[in-house]
Amino acid sequence: MRSISDATIKQYSVSYKRWGLFCQEKVLDPWDPTPSSMVAFFQHVMDSSNISYNSINSYRAALSLIARSQVGCDPLVSRFLKGVARLRPPAPRYNITWNPYTVLDFLDREFSEIGELSKKLVTLFLLATGHRLQTIHLIRMGEISFSATSGVRIKITDPIKCSGPNKKQPLISIPPLQEKPNLCVVKNLQKYIDLTAPIRPTAEDFLFIISRPPYNRASKATLSRWVLSTLSDAGVDTSIFKPHSTRHAATSAASRAGVSIDIIRQSAGWSQRSDVFTQFYNRPLQEEASLLHSII
């Protein structure tokens, strides 16, 4: 089980719960999925919901993990999944993105209260790096190093989504932003560390902590709420755009500004041969999506 991340286990638990109910109804052994029972289960799920290929493929992976044989690779299952891909193809979550300058304009002021500064700093980290929230959540105090000339360098030593053998861990490097001190990640990070120093538990090495007793480490879900609150307060439509959309907004804005694809990949943690940015993240601005709107 050590080969499976906590996030994967959490994702698979939904599949197992639904599979267990299906087996109970059909009087099947949940610990012995067969190709035919898996296909019947997939069809049942599709008939009762509007989920796409990606979700069905996740169900396949979950059931393959507990199966006694390689049923996930069975020709019947593979053929069914090909049909699902044609009927309900995977699609990017967003076809448009928001303008990060809307949020930056909102954040371009002093924040002195720890709770508000926490929200600001997390959001600035996401927009300045293009990284996932998971990566920012894993920043440790002991891995932060400041430089008067180069700003701040942060090593991420804990496993992330794309960690693996012979793969480099993220190294976040952010220069100072002298012309915009209120938006400078380095300045706001130093301020956050100073403000939280008196209340930070002695053994707490992770950067972000909650601003009320017992001042424990902030969970990733808490950081997500902070970002969502900031986006909403800045005027971003959070009924459409969620915290992960900062990755789309930041990298798309960098591309529009002429930043090379290699630098975008390096900053956001994609490999040099990855086409993920082109396929799923490079999106036009929401206000540019309508040609008619732009000419009337």
Rank of each mutant, 00 (worst) to 15 (best):
Q286P: 00
Q43V: 06
H293I: 14
P100W: 01
E116Q: 13
V227P: 03
I9R: 15
S163M: 05
T238L: 01
T278V: 12
M1K: 09
R140M: 04
F80A: 01
E288D: 13
H137R: 08
R88H: 15
V152K: 10
S224N: 14
I154C: 08
W270H: 11
S239L: 09
R2M: 13
S69H: 01
F206Q: 03
I160W: 06
S255D: 04
E143P: 00
V45L: 15
N282K: 07
A40P: 04
R273C: 13
V152C: 07
G142V: 01
T222Y: 12
C184S: 08
S69Y: 05
L127E: 01
V103I: 15
V27L: 06
L104I: 09
K168F: 03
S52C: 11
D275E: 10
T222S: 13
S58R: 14
V84P: 01
F22N: 05
H44V: 08
K26Y: 08
H137N: 13
R247K: 07
K220E: 06
K17M: 09
K26T: 11
D233W: 02
K119H: 07
P181D: 10
T123E: 13
D233C: 09
K161C: 02
A62W: 03
Y53W: 15
R212I: 14
K26M: 11
D194I: 14
L189K: 12
S49H: 10
T196C: 06
H137E: 10
